[in-house]
């Protein structure tokens, strides 16, 4: 099939119906593999002890909170320039998922911070910028739903997303630019990862699982949104 046909909502919906079961079952399969490795096959850390296991959900959630924003920013750009309806639909479906993953990042990070740092929350650059990301997601959801005409909501939410992209490099490199309590990157750096391979395996499987969970929820929300718009069109035609 032609990949470019996917830009038509109808073709996309057919395609998404076909891959949804694979994505959905895949996410559950990888989740169980990931859980098995994170509790049975990975050792405690030399310094943090057992609390290192929180990393296996905290880090994938944090990666996704940034990746989803990148997807939304690209869609917002396409929507503003080329007025493509599918871009708006994807952006609108992604916002609640991004907000959830950011929320998970903040909460698990907080629970991890208590036994390691000795504090639930500190106002250092990494934590603060991640909190701002959460507010941007919430703002996107509020803006896109607060207009009678959904097209107006889409447009304003897209502008908000493009403005908010300033926050992404700040989150990513905050640990290098400033003295933060949060530790620097272990994997996403030019050097070799500074995590032992036994701890890298559960992290890897959890990251795949979280990504598939994101995809499966996104597909559901996109097909819902396409139908909502079809209903609007039918209503306005009569």
């Amino acid at each position: 099939m032609n990949f470019f046909n996917l830009s038509s909502p109808n073709k996309f919906q057919k395609f998404s119906k076909r891959i949804y079961p694979w994505v959905s079952y895949g996410s559950i399969m990888f989740l169980f593999i990931g859980l098995f490795f994170s509790f049975f096959k990975s050792p405690p850390d030399y310094l943090q002890g057992e609390s290192v296991r929180i990393m296996y959900i905290h880090v994938p959630a944090a990666w996704l909170s940034l990746q989803i924003y990148v997807v939304m920013a690209i869609c917002s750009f396409v929507s503003l320039v080329y007025r493509h309806s599918l871009a708006d639909i994807i952006s609108r479906s992604c916002a609640p998922i991004g907000a959830t993953f950011t929320f998970i990042t903040l909460i698990t990070g907080s629970i991890w911070g208590k036994p390691t740092w000795g504090a639930w929350w500190v106002w250092d650059a990494r934590l603060t910028s991640e909190l701002i990301l959460f507010f941007i997601y919430i703002g996107h959801m509020i803006v896109s739903n607060s207009y009678e005409d959904y097209r107006k909501g889409d447009k304003n939410a897209a502008i908000l997303t493009l403005v908010g992209i300033v926050n992404l490099p700040i989150i990513k490199w905050s640990v290098d630019w400033w003295n933060t309590l949060h530790q620097p990157a272990s994997i996403m750096k030019l050097d070799t990862p500074s995590i032992d391979s036994e701890m890298l395996t559960p992290l890897f499987f959890m990251a795949i699982s979280f990504f598939l969970i994101f995809l499966s929820i996104m597909l559901t929300r996109i097909s819902t949104e396409i139908m909502v718009r079809k209903i609007e069109i039918i209503k306005s035609n009569f």
Partner: peptide, 26 residues
Amino acid sequence: NFLTFLNSDKYITYVCSSYLICFFGL
């Protein structure tokens, strides 16, 4: 590894609550 984890009464509540909150949210 799992048995030593179960015996770590200090950390087990932190780890379990973070996993529970995460999957509950999802």
